[in-house]
């Protein structure tokens, strides 16, 4: 996706907008599904892309478009979770009970899930954004609206806490 295509989509080119949706929908959907479950993920993803079409003119390209979209999706997920009057269950939605085929899990899955579940919500969110969604520190900082140093600090302390839980 070139800047020209983003520019075209920002100025009403529907084909360019549809191309953007196709390119990023899977990422956004999975991101949403990990936070609010499959049943609400489609709604959150759709709202994310509708927001994108309205706001794309303000996108200055200082971050990756994917990161920008995940930031929007993150806020829509929070909003939908509030409206649905239910707590997001990021662990169940994010992590399966068995490793994916072709990958190894050095630590027992249940132990990892338990250790993650004992983290505070803030620490857990940073861990999931980095380890599961694959966002860099600066992308996490943009998504959550916090400094990069805070991301680094939270991530270290979250991992250290998980280590203590696993070794206990």
């Amino acid at each position: 996706m070139t800047q020209a295509q983003i520019h075209a989509a920002a100025h009403g080119d529907r084909e360019a907008a549809a191309h953007l949706v196709r390119q990023h929908y899977a990422d956004v959907f999975r991101f949403c599904a990990r936070r609010i479950g499959h049943d609400l993920a489609a709604d959150a993803a759709q709202e994310t892309f509708l927001t994108m079409t309205r706001s794309l003119a303000r996108f200055e390209g200082r971050s990756d478009l994917r990161t920008w979209l995940l930031g929007i999706a993150y806020r829509h997920c929070q909003s939908l979770a509030r409206k649905a009057r239910r707590e997001p269950s990021p662990i169940d939605a994010s992590l399966g009970r068995e490793p994916m085929a072709g990958s190894s899990c050095p630590i027992e899955a249940t132990a990892v899930r338990d250790a993650l579940g004992k983290l505070s919500a803030e620490h857990r969110e940073v861990v999931l954004l980095h380890e599961v969604d694959g966002l860099t520190y600066s992308e996490i900082a943009q998504t959550l609206g916090i400094p990069v140093g805070t991301v680094k600090s939270r991530l270290y302390h979250a991992l250290a806490a998980m280590r203590r839980t696993l070794e206990a």
């Binding site: 992590l95 490793p99 990958s103 990892v112 899930r113 380890e131 991992l159």
Partner: peptide
Amino acid sequence: IGESLRSLARGS
């Protein structure tokens, strides 16, 4: 821990 989390990540 990181490897375990990534291996457990749900793909949907």
